[in-house]
Design a protein around this nucleic acid. Structure first.
Length: 261
DNA sequence: AAAAAGAGCAACCGCCGCCGG
DNA sequence: GCCGGCGGCGGTTGCTCTTTT
């Protein structure tokens, strides 16, 4: 029996006679119809994990959902937008006040053109870094903090520690299968290990200062050539270097680019 | 009981990177 | 190098149900 669906979504609406595009079918399957999807309320453990992962990864819903068996990115996103956003909305950090386009704050109960509550849609936006998945290349790699220019070999080292490509992993598997390779710890293994072992140590309501440690730990675990201390030093260099580090060094891309391998 | 407001969630939209021609 | 098709993602919208007034 031929199978349509994952990998062949364009066939699904045709075969099923549905007046839907491939993307709608895929979304419906992934978010609702897939048998492995877990319904119902989030458990305390799941909520705790979401908070910790969101603290670490930001709005990378698919990545967060990947650590929650049976939960979809949409579930996690909806949960966050409806439950956690309310909680963080009152916190002084990292949220900033919501304003209308004219600079005023929305009046209580104010509606937009779609009759939706403005307070719901323009609720204080968390000041979260939003890295986009991007291929790591010599062109895209930039170093953010001018006072500490990396030595050229730092960049080289960084490249050497990039997550392996699919071809690399295939090669490694083949080599290991052929008896040529040892028990190599892959980049993804390191991330998995960090998430499994280290995530529980992340402070949920940590202040700005405490945020630095797990990131430094993560950095040094992914990029062993960088000493944790130096990573922390770099991050303390500027007031908002925490942001700079994530956005400009694009470590999130390292985390996200290959998570589906 | 009815209207208004709030909340939850599935679906839509636009953008992105990858890949093959 | 360019282009089009594809899968995938995050942000946003709109519908529906529930709660409040």
């Amino acid at each position: 029996m031929e199978v349509y669906g994952e990998g062949r979504w364009h066939q699904v609406p045709i075969r099923a006679g549905l007046n839907r595009c491939r993307k709608s079918c895929r979304l419906r399957w992934l978010n609702y119809l897939k048998p492995s999807i877990k319904r119902g309320e989030f458990s305390d453990d799941e909520v705790d994990l979401i908070i910790r992962l969101h603290k670490l990864l930001g709005n990378r819903w698919s990545l967060i959902a990947g650590r929650l068996p049976g939960r979809t990115a949409n579930d996690v996103k909806n949960y966050w937008n409806t439950h956690q956003k309310k909680k963080t909305a009152t916190a002084p950090f990292p949220c900033k006040p919501a304003y209308l386009s004219d600079g005023r704050q929305p009046a209580a109960g104010a509606k937009n053109k779609n009759n939706n509550n403005i307070s719901r849609l323009q609720i204080t936006k968390a000041n979260i870094i939003k890295p986009r998945p991007r291929t790591f290349s010599s062109k895209s790699l930039s170093w953010p903090m001018k006072p500490i220019q990396p030595k050229p070999n730092n960049i080289i080292n960084l490249h050497h520690k990039l997550p392996p490509s699919q071809d690399d992993r295939r090669r490694n598997c083949q080599e290991n299968h052929d008896g040529g390779g040892g028990a190599e710890i892959t980049w993804m293994d390191q991330l998995e290990r960090f998430l499994d072992d280290g995530i529980n140590n992340l402070p949920v309501a940590a202040d700005h200062e405490a945020d630095r440690f797990p990131l430094g730990q993560l950095m040094s675990s992914i990029l062993p050539d960088h000493q944790e201390k130096s990573v922390d030093n770099m991050m303390m260099f500027e007031e908002d270097s925490y942001q700079s580090f994530w956005s400009d060094l694009d470590i999130c891309h390292l985390l996200s680019d290959r998570h589906d391998i």
